[in-house]
């Protein structure tokens, strides 16, 4: 379609007379907060060249495999995943990718803990991480309850006393298979994916946290935490950065 005024529209700026519209305001705010090159940068600060930074992406990849294999299980159903060899294989992929997910998540959070990666207005990143962890534990728990075997019977009867003692048993009944399956395949995955989405967007929004200043750095440089996206903080000059951080 040719309007004769493609340039401002195509550049995302829109037409001046449309600027009062909700779509224009939302787009403007989104693009200002996370311009494409910040959302998906080509380069990272030099200090990101360490294996410890890989574990967030590894956790994310494992979550991707969990979701895809879970979708395949949902397509073919329980008799398939219990009885056919392919079904058992996909069921195992689902279970083992959860193991990788938690393994990578724990290494990730240890890394972030020792970097104090909540510095410089990154609190919300840490908190969304913590909450994703807790919700993921719930997702794994309801997964164990959805196995339809003696294991899940054992887990549910052990858990029911604990949950009943909190009073939550009245609405969250761990011996109710249908309810646990729905939590496992609908509610909790939605929450985990939403939280992880916010978590990763926050990382892009704030940039990767700069390392602590070395002990022999001048006091002025060492104190204070970066309080803006511009990284006014330890090592902001000392460490060569590549691209936007």
């Amino acid at each position: 379609m040719t309007t004769g005024t493609e340039t401002p529209v195509e550049s995302g700026a829109g037409l001046p007379e449309d600027s009062h519209q909700l779509s224009a305001k939302l787009r403007g705010a989104a693009v200002a907060a996370l311009p494409p090159e910040r959302l998906m940068p080509d380069r990272q600060p030099a200090y990101v060249a360490s294996w410890i930074y890989v574990f967030g992406a590894l956790t994310l990849s494992a979550l991707g495999v969990v979701i895809v294999t879970g979708l395949v299980l949902a397509i073919f159903g329980p008799s398939w995943w219990h009885l056919s060899t392919t079904g058992l294989f996909v069921n195992s992929l689902h279970m083992w990718s959860v193991e990788v997910f938690f393994f990578a998540m724990v290494v990730h959070l240890w890394g972030k803990f020792f970097m104090a990666a909540w510095r410089g207005r990154r609190r919300a990143t840490w908190i969304t991480g913590v909450v994703s962890f807790v919700v993921s534990v719930g997702a794994a728990f309801t997964g164990y309850l959805s196995q339809q075997n003696f294991d899940s019977q054992w887990v549910s009867t052990q858990a029911k006393d604990g949950i009943n003692s909190t009073g939550a048993g009245a609405i969250f009944n761990v011996t109710n298979f249908g309810q646990m399956l729905m939590w496992h395949i609908v509610l909790l995955p939605l929450v985990v994916v939403a939280l992880v989405g916010v978590h990763v967007l926050l990382v892009r929004l704030r940039g990767v946290v700069p390392p602590f200043a070395p002990p022999d750095a001048p006091a002025t440089e060492a104190k204070g935490t970066p309080d803006s996206q511009g990284e006014v903080g330890p090592n902001s000059q000392a460490v060569p950065t590549e691209g936007r951080s």
Binding site: R43, A46, F55
Partner: peptide, 26 residues
């Protein structure tokens, strides 16, 4: 055993150098 493996992988991730490919910078 799983906790032990996580500790090992954590230290390996910190100690093993990360190979950087081409491009400007170091």
């Amino acid at each position: 055993v799983v906790i032990g493996l996580m500790v090992i992988v954590f230290f390996a991730a910190i100690l093993i150098p990360f190979r950087r490919h081409g491009g400007r910078g170091r």
